[in-house]
Design a protein around this nucleic acid. Structure first.
Lengths: 232, 232
DNA sequence: TTGGCGTAAGTGATCACTTACTTACCAGCC
DNA sequence: GGCTGGTAAGTAAGTGATCACTTACGCCAA
């Protein structure tokens, strides 16, 4: 009958887990401590035994989301090449629009957008991580593609091009967040082809190279790596 | 000594004008009716004489922002061409990053992002307007560019390509919203060149055409048109 | 004189957060 | 094993502040 008594750590983690979707859905101001406590199945008093303030819960969520540094070494181990570049781009598109349940991804998107509407601190931490761990794969491969003649050089640095592509995908995903999306796009498979071509052309890849690697399959393991990786 | 008594319409408009930056900055839940009243220099009671609820003020803002249908006819009157396409793209980039005070633009950006984090209704209305009044210029010119051989056809429809470009710019602008932006980019002039090249390449424009129209000046009047137009 | 602009002073509800208290668990001692 | 005391998990019932929103009334121009 009684709910189980949890250890300090697991209770704290449970609160964070329960609060995450609430903050993501309703924003900081729109989320009440009562609703967090209810979601966790505890009293507000206990919530404040674990966290000194509502802000502390929010901060704990943000640092939590920034954790998790999975096997990105495997992706970094891939030799920089045009093929890796295309695989990378497909992986990134897949992360934003792919199948493995939009819940977690949408929560992160919402947190980033909320952060940008506020002080941007969380976005900064997250983008730093992406720039350190994700972007280099793209950058090295793009350089390799240019060197091999399969891509033209750009006005923009590979690093800037990475963020252009990343931001395009972020905003597209954001526009699909509402229950009734404000814009309609083609079905997933076609949509993926469209976006991929747009981005690969944008970063200077030649049409011949785009066509050549159009059907290279995503290594399954790498694809899943990518999903967890983007959360780094 | 007494504050001036305003007519119903002008008072109502004043309230909307004062509330807009508050909602844009703090979101719906984060904005209190007291702060709106203070910003307008009136009592809360008067606020509720003009609007039945806080939500009504918000709705009035959104419909207000969606109004204003300026001389977009002049832009539509431009003959569809590769040159018009490049001018259009520069105008769009300029609207997102240009000089005429980021205040108004940032407010609209914040409202759109907030809307996407909530029900997306406002974003839908705004995007509908853009698709009706802004996108056709782009679409027709891109078709013309393809027909003239200066652009390659894409997997994506010109309409989708327009939104890809628009979303890229939206997210870039959104990432620059926080006081301390989470990402740093080159100085404006260089940044504009980078983004323009990325987007024009992305929509399939040939490098030769990009270079050919690289220095075509923005007609001043059209540029300002564009600014007010994007709010349509 | 009177209709509508305008406000002072509230309303109950809900906010983040506390206080005072009970309950379960687990030592260490007999 | 039982008994027990200390500690931490957990809660009921608040706190004053602030929320969105009202009521009752003054005031001024037409």
């Amino acid at each position: 009958m009684n709910p189980p008594r949890l250890s300090r750590d697991s209770r704290r983690q449970q609160i964070v887990d329960c609060a995450l979707p609430l903050f993501a859905q309703n924003g900081f101001a729109g989320t009440t401590t009562k609703r967090i406590a209810d979601a966790a199945g505890i009293s507000e008093a206990l919530l404040f035994k674990h966290f000194p303030s509502k802000s502390a819960v929010y901060s704990a969520i943000l640092t939590d989301v920034c954790e998790a540094d999975p096997g990105l070494m495997r992706l970094r181990a891939l030799a920089p090449s045009t093929r890796t570049l295309v695989i990378f781009m497909r992986g990134m598109i897949n992360w934003f629009f792919g199948t493995p349940g939009p819940a977690e991804r949408n929560e992160k998107l919402r947190l980033v957008l909320s952060s940008q509407l506020e002080d941007g601190e969380f976005a900064q931490v997250l983008f730093d991580k992406v720039e350190q761990h994700v972007a280099p794969v793209f950058i090295d491969s793009l350089k390799a593609a240019i060197a091999s003649g399969e891509a033209r050089a750009s006005e923009a640095s590979p690093r800037d091009l990475f963020w252009f592509a990343h931001h395009t995908l972020s905003m597209l995903a954001a526009s699909l967040l509402p229950r009734v999306p404000p814009l309609s796009f083609p079905p997933p498979a076609q949509f993926e082809r469209e976006v991929r071509e747009f981005l690969l052309r944008g970063i200077g890849l030649d049409d011949a190279a785009i066509a050549a690697y159009a059907d290279c399959e995503m290594p399954r393991e790498l694809l899943s790596e990518f999903c967890s990786l983007e959360s780094a």
